[in-house]
Design a protein around this nucleic acid. Structure first.
Lengths: 147, 147
DNA sequence: TTGACAAATAATAATAATTATCGTTTAATA
DNA sequence: TATTAAACGATAATTATTATTATTTGTCAA
């Protein structure tokens, strides 16, 4: 997709969402999309600063949040912000409630084994799999029905 | 396993590791093991404080780190501490290097589909799967061979 | 048992990541 | 082009975590 085209799409999406198309916002989005390496907000800030030296880190954080809320962007993991500890030493995976952040264990044996269709060509040595089943837990589902 | 027995095992493990068996350390471990809900350090602190009101939050953090380093404990996720952003909207999963924290995308199509063997009995509504292949990336593997 | 010494602790300061506040500027639209 | 709500920059505040340091406590050997 051409740059011009994706820019127009971005502007259209902003209008749908009632977001002003500012110079800063546009550049944050453009840099984000050009990075691809699962960057941190700090890294995005550094990249955008090359084009707008006076931009504030807060603006980068705020726009990232806006994009996340709008679904233009995702976080790699739900478990960022605070450490969660694991005491279960049995092989298992996790059910993760995206609403209340509850984490429930599910024994490995309840899932069909994960398998690669072919060898990776990246030289990456896989040591273990970690599977998360993301969704809404029973408690949260009930709560939202009641209201 | 009885409490007395697991306590003795804990003490033995500490001696193997050269760790002093202190009142605080023992209680932090005991509470951790009794919680099971993937607690945060703060929550562990609150629980331990019921038994040792004067304990310091720093002591809880430091012991958790010690347990993690010793392999007595695990973190639920590698992605804690700082936000990582995702711009790839195609269905995919992740290769996560546990050494350098690099995250690489792997198309969903390269993995056999994840499937539950039977329905969950927890009332949990699964919306999507997130699979992480944890291991060592090519760059890191090469670096450790060179030295 | 006791005494010496390393390790652990409590108190507290420092740091890192992120969010909130607020006065000023800018984009949307009438 | 004037009005107004939204966004911005500067900065303070907050949250999670780590570092520092003086004091206390296990460990181990005599």
């Amino acid at each position: 997709m051409h740059y011009e085209e994706s820019l127009r799409q971005f502007e259209a999406r902003c209008r749908e969402l009632g977001l002003a198309v500012t110079h800063q916002r546009t550049l944050i989005y453009r840099e984000l999309m050009s990075m691809g390496e699962h960057p941190t907000p700090e890294l995005v800030y550094e990249r955008v600063r090359q084009h707008i030296p006076a931009i504030s880190l807060g603006t980068v954080y705020k726009n990232i949040r806006t994009f996340l809320d709008a679904g233009l962007l995702r976080e790699v993991s739900f478990h960022h912000g605070t450490q969660r500890l694991e005491t279960n030493v049995e092989p298992h995976h996790h059910l993760v409630c995206t609403r209340c952040r509850k984490i429930l264990d599910i024994p490995e044996s309840e899932l069909e084994p994960v398998r690669l269709k072919k060898k990776l060509k990246t030289g990456f040595k896989v040591e273990r799999f970690s599977i998360e089943l993301l969704g809404i837990c029973g408690d949260c589902a009930q709560l939202s029905q009641e209201n």
